[in-house]
Amino acid sequence: MHLTHDPASHSAEETEFDTFLKVDVRAGRIVRAEAFPEARNPAYKLWIDFGPGIGEKKSAAQITEHYALDDLPGQTVMAVVNFPPRQIGPVRSEVLVLGFADQDGAIRLARPDGDVPLGARLS
Rank of each mutant, 00 (worst) to 15 (best):
E38Y: 08
R29I: 10
A61W: 00
M1D: 14
D49C: 15
S93H: 12
Q87R: 07
E94I: 03
S93R: 09
E14L: 12
A27G: 07
V77I: 10
H10V: 13
V80K: 01
G119S: 11
A60Y: 04
G89E: 09
L98C: 14
M78P: 00
D70E: 14
L72R: 01
L122T: 02
A79T: 04
G74L: 14
R111D: 13
L109I: 07
L98H: 07
D102Y: 07
A27V: 15
G105H: 07
L122R: 07
L3N: 10
V77E: 01
G74A: 14
P7W: 09
F20V: 10
V23T: 12
G51C: 08
D113Q: 15
H10E: 12
L3T: 10
P84Y: 02
L98R: 04
Q87A: 06
T19L: 12
I107R: 06
T19E: 12
T64K: 04
E65Y: 06
P73G: 03
R32E: 10
A101I: 01
S93D: 12
R26N: 00
P117L: 08
E38N: 03
D113C: 11
E13C: 04
D104S: 14
R86V: 06
R29E: 08
G55L: 14
D70N: 09
D24R: 10
R40K: 08
F20P: 02
F100E: 01
A39I: 00
P37Q: 00
G114R: 15
M1G: 15
P7H: 13
L96W: 04
E13H: 09
E13G: 05
H5K: 10
H10N: 10
G51Y: 15
A8P: 01
G53W: 07
G114M: 11
I48T: 06
I63E: 03
E34K: 05
D18L: 06
A8G: 07
A101L: 06
G53H: 02
D115C: 04
S123P: 04
R26S: 05
A33W: 03
H10C: 03
P37A: 03
V97Y: 00
F36N: 10
Y44F: 14
G114Y: 12
I30G: 06
Q103W: 05
L72G: 06
A12I: 12
D113N: 15
L3H: 11
N41D: 07
A39W: 00
T76F: 05
F36Q: 09
Q75I: 13
V77F: 00
P42A: 10
S93A: 13
D6R: 06
E16Q: 09
D104I: 01
A106G: 13
V95S: 02
R92K: 10
L122N: 04
A101K: 06
A33D: 07
A33N: 05
